[in-house]
């Protein structure tokens, strides 16, 4: 019986393994050490690794992320937690100007091997300021990489690769997924002895023939629920494609899926305007137009700031019923 662990535990294992793998890896963030993490992702790591490797930062995102960028230029590999990715906005200059462009502006003399990670999701009734999903904003900037895992397995394999990557990686998680469990093998069950998933490789979460439901982050899980309904109630065999990383992007896997199914819907919890789905829809129509039997549809969060009211926020974020409805409209 393969073991099951939570998304949170998977991240924790990935961080722990990378702390062991490289002395230069240091975890920095608010409440990551003595408090064991606001969402317990770093639980136990301070006890195990001590003050030097797991560092509590003051509430000072521009300060400690900028500091991490500077330290990374000297070969330290900071993994910095944003308690919410929404807080990236107070560190925006550091994350957009310094992390993304120092390599370019130095003509390639510098690289910035940092990871900034934390939850980037709505759906938890914490209002607009704590519910931002900025994956499209950061993926827009050349020099940055953006990763958004949907399962515990992916979270572990991707965080390890992100930490080993020599470019800045912004790693966007979901508080809704932290407590959910998936199968994640023990290291001794894996060829090579550890779980590493390359950035830039999408994953077919469910094979199908009739329509491609393409998504990232938690929307993948919603798409899988919708695929079950489409199959059980409508006899439609949907394929679910998980980007896993948004930049770099596994274009080939997406296009192959659409060539097979001839129909595509992009699903995300992000906002629609210039969202990730806009980029993917543009790419699909441009590259495999002749294979399409219907327009490429996009499903996103409703186009307003995140609402607080719990039942309304539920309605604001795409659910399986909406995906089913949209899919049926082109099948």
């Amino acid at each position: 019986m393969p073991r099951k662990i939570t998304y949170r535990k998977a991240l924790n294992e990935g961080l722990d393994e990378e702390l062991a793998n490289d002395d230069n890896v240091v975890i920095i963030g608010e409440e990551v050490a003595e408090y064991n993490g606001a969402y317990k992702v770093t639980e136990g790591l301070w006890d195990k690794w001590g003050d030097k490797r797991v560092v509590d930062a003051p509430i000072s995102e521009a300060g400690f992320i900028g500091m991490g960028i500077g330290a990374s230029m000297l070969g330290v590999r900071p993994v910095m937690e944003l308690m919410f990715f929404s807080f990236a906005y107070v560190a925006f200059d550091q994350m957009m100007n310094n992390a993304a462009t120092c390599r370019y502006m130095s003509g390639g003399l510098i690289n910035v091997p940092i990871v900034v990670r934390g939850p980037a999701n709505g759906g938890t009734n914490v209002g607009a300021t704590h519910s931002h999903t900025p994956e499209n904003i950061f993926a827009n900037m050349p020099g940055l990489k953006v990763v958004s895992p949907s399962t515990a397995y992916d979270a572990k394999g991707l965080i390890k690769s992100a930490i080993r990557d020599n470019d800045p990686v912004y790693f966007m998680e979901s508080t809704v997924l932290y407590g959910q469990e998936w199968e994640v093998p023990e290291n001794d069950e894996i060829e090579g002895g550890e779980l590493l998933i390359p950035l830039g490789s999408a994953d077919i979460k469910k094979e199908g023939t009739d329509i491609s439901l393409i998504a990232h982050g938690r929307a993948v899980i919603t798409a899988l629920e919708a695929a079950e309904i489409l199959s059980a109630e409508h006899g439609i065999n949907a394929e679910v494609v998980d980007l896993r990383s948004i930049r770099p992007l596994d274009e080939q896997t997406i296009l192959e899926s659409v060539k097979k199914t001839n129909r595509a819907v992009y699903i995300e919890e992000n906002k629609p305007f210039c969202g990730v789905g806009a980029q993917i829809a543009s790419m699909i129509q441009e590259k495999v137009f002749d294979y399409l039997d219907a327009p490429v549809l996009r499903i996103s969060s409703m186009d307003s700031p995140a609402i607080y009211s719990p039942p309304l926020e539920k309605a604001q974020i795409p659910d399986a019923a909406l995906i089913v409805k949209k899919a049926l409209s082109i099948c």
């Binding site: 240091v26 030097k52 521009a62 500091m67 500077g70 330290a71 000297l74 310094n98 502006m105």
Partner: peptide, 30 residues
């Protein structure tokens, strides 16, 4: 920029380099 001469820029945004300076110091200490 000239990292081989311990020179880390040259930064265009006013005060944007000040956390980086703390980071270089952090790196030395680390």
């Amino acid at each position: 920029f000239a990292p081989d001469k311990n020179y880390w820029g040259g930064h265009g945004i006013v005060a944007g380099q000040t956390p980086l300076g703390a980071g270089l110091a952090y790196g030395l200490k680390y």
